[in-house]
Amino acid sequence: MSNQPNKEGFYGDFGGAYVPESLRQCITELQRSYLPIIESEAFQKEYHQLLKDYVGRPSPLYYARRMSEKYGCRLYLKREDLNHTGAHKINNTIGQILMARQMGKKRIIAETGAGQHGVATATVCALMGMECEIFMGATDVERQHLNVERMRMLGATVTAVRSGNMTLSDACTEAIRNWCERPQDTFYIVGSTVGPHPYPDLVTRMQSVISKEIKWQLQEKEGRDYPDYLVACIGGGSNAAGTMYHYIDDSRVKICLAEAGGRGVDTDFTAATINCGTEGILHGSRTLVIQTDDGQVKEAYSISAGLDYPGIGPLQAQLARSGRTHVFAINDDEAIGAGYELTRMEGIIPAIESAHAVAALRKMKFKQDDVVVLTVSGRGDKDVETYLNNKAMAEGFGF
């Protein structure tokens, strides 16, 4: 299974570019431009310089001693939570803002759920002096108030979306609608590996710095450049795509992903797209979608504002269908318990999104010498209130 799409943007059965006619020219321009721009020497030099001096890369690969003892393996945490702005999202927004500038765009829009992509987008717009508007579901505006104020402080306009269940999917829909109104001067910085081609490939390439670093960091720490297991949470799929990018064709590496089970995959309150979804079109690509039998997209639910998306990136859909990845559905209580576990055992408060990946460890069995790399995609400052309000969920896990 290749990590590269074909020329139409398909990974096997999934992908493509299903967009309204008003956006066709924009998407075609982006498809023609993105590889020549990002593969140019000038782009690569500026991009990597900003990752080093502005973002703070490389992010550490930390050996989690106490958690390793508990789970009977050699567990390393890829600390994307230590990046500037507190998550992996900045890797992508740095790259896309440089592209937007190269293409002569003056106005930036983005969608956000947990707010980390919105903050990262507002941050790079402040850096580059560009106009910025962030679309965020009204439900998420309320539960991620701190990130909303960070975006506003950075100079962005935050538009609360009140359609649907007022979360991430609705924010995506509204951002696309806005793009249709002003395609000439607007660049849409998509935050995950979703949307029409070339966005899934573009975002994956921007996040691939994660697995590139894992390779040389493991070589330094373990004397080999590959783990036995990779673990990451998955909503739209960007941190997972970056974590596994350089290992997709390496059969020695088992890839385990954690999606949001919500209140259970057998309920209507779930965002477990791979476990529950069927093939359909969502936000410009063919992928797996949580939908009714007649193709109406259902409202996804998760306690995590960044994972309650009713679709998944086409790369992740194809990898799951081919059997390359094993996907766990992690329920809300399991994620909250895992968040407290990492906090109490290693002194690291993870974003609730990342806590889903930590919870997957309980569902896996390791040998003592197995090397496991788990990506902590974001820090948990934004989620402290949610953790405290749902602390009772963690009691069953001993916290």
Rank of each mutant, 00 (worst) to 15 (best):
V19S: 09
Q4T: 12
Y47M: 13
N389A: 15
V384P: 02
Q116N: 15
I109C: 10
W216H: 00
L388N: 09
G118D: 14
Q184H: 12
V371D: 02
F399D: 03
F43C: 12
V376Q: 06
L35P: 02
M345K: 15
V55Q: 06
Q44E: 09
N91R: 11
R107D: 11
R32C: 08
D383P: 02
H88V: 14
E385Y: 13
G284L: 12
R66V: 00
G104L: 10
P200L: 14
T167F: 14
D53L: 05
Q316T: 13
Q217V: 08
I38H: 03
E353F: 13
I109A: 04
D268G: 15
R344P: 07
L23F: 10
G113D: 06
E80Y: 09
A360L: 15
F269R: 09
I349C: 08
T121C: 15
S208F: 13
I274R: 04
N91C: 11
G86Q: 05
A114E: 02
E346G: 00
C256Q: 09
V384H: 03
G237F: 11
E46L: 11
R152C: 10
A120Q: 13
K367R: 04
A171N: 04
E341Q: 04
C132D: 05
Y340Q: 10
R57E: 02
I349S: 05
A114C: 07
Q116M: 10
Q318A: 04
I214G: 10
S251Q: 10
Y47A: 14
V158G: 01
E142P: 03
H88G: 11
F399E: 01
Y340F: 13
R224C: 04
M136S: 13
V373S: 11
Y71C: 05
G339C: 02
G15Q: 00
R24A: 15
S211R: 05
T267I: 13
T292E: 11
A100D: 12
K298W: 11
D225R: 08
P58D: 07
F187N: 01
A329C: 11
V384S: 05
W216D: 04
A241V: 13
I27D: 01
A394M: 02
I348W: 00
G261S: 05
A110S: 14
G72K: 14
V358M: 10
R107G: 02
K363Q: 05
L388D: 02
L77P: 00
I189F: 05
S304Q: 10
F14Y: 15
N390F: 03
E395Q: 08
Q318G: 02
D333F: 02
S169W: 13
V124I: 11
L288E: 07
A260L: 04
I352G: 06
G72R: 07
L307A: 09
F328L: 13
Y62T: 14
L50Y: 06
P20T: 12
